[in-house]
């Protein structure tokens, strides 16, 4: 391949689910979703609309100050994540020494108990968004009366074509209430 045909690429350093990933040359224009699927074989992050609308492709970016945020991987280049640490839907459950799932996170468990999803296409995005919310409320608790609005504000951009959101909403509320320190007393 001549130099001219070579796809411009740059080494990418990224931490996923607590593990530093092997550094390799990644095309400058590759979207993060494709990097997860094709380079890391992490296929749990879903490709829904590809235009930043449905949020099925949402992952969590963890900042050094302990805060975190959602990021849509279908419209964000892999190199945006250079030097960053992210969590995908594969990173929430506790695993045993053999890598088998030992226990689900509170959010995941509540989603199952409430039968929150049907086809599950949207579920990885909801797991990540709800987790960002629960962790934020641990740092910045809200009054119990404000919880309903807080949940809608945090999750309203996520689309689900099957469920009508009610069971997602109840599951997130219960996950918040089951997590100590998320609700302001008094």
């Amino acid at each position: 391949m001549s130099e001219r045909d070579r796809i411009p690429s740059t080494p990418l350093h990224v931490t996923i689910n607590g593990r530093r990933q092997p550094v390799e040359d990644v095309p400058n224009e590759l979207m993060m979703l494709d990097y997860l699927h094709e380079y890391r074989n992490l296929t749990g992050t879903r490709y829904g609309c590809g235009i930043g609308l449905c949020r099925a492709c949402t992952v969590i970016v963890d900042h050094e100050d302990g805060t975190s945020e959602e990021r849509r991987t279908c419209i964000t280049g892999a190199h945006f994540f250079e030097g960053k640490s992210i969590r995908t839907v594969e990173g929430h459950a506790e695993r045993d020494e053999d890598g088998e799932i030992a226990s689900l996170s509170e959010v995941q468990q509540q989603f199952l108990e409430h039968f929150s999803f049907q086809c599950s296409y949207c579920a990885p995005g909801f797991v990540n968004a709800a987790t960002v919310l629960v962790e934020r409320l641990q740092r910045e608790p809200v009054a119990r009366e404000a919880l309903e609005d807080t949940i809608s504000d945090a999750l309203e951009d996520h689309l689900c074509r099957c469920t009508g959101y009610v069971r997602y909403y109840r599951a997130v509320r219960d996950a918040v209430l089951a997590t100590p320190g998320t609700i302001k007393e008094g």
Binding site: P8, N28, E29, M31, G50, I51, I75, G77
Partner: peptide
Amino acid sequence: TTDGQGAQLYLDNCAGCHGSDGRGVARVA
């Protein structure tokens, strides 16, 4: 120029919808 800070910012933040060649997507961008 396809390299440099501006080019990479475009690829990281804009190209997902507007395309790396800038052609956009009908009814989207």
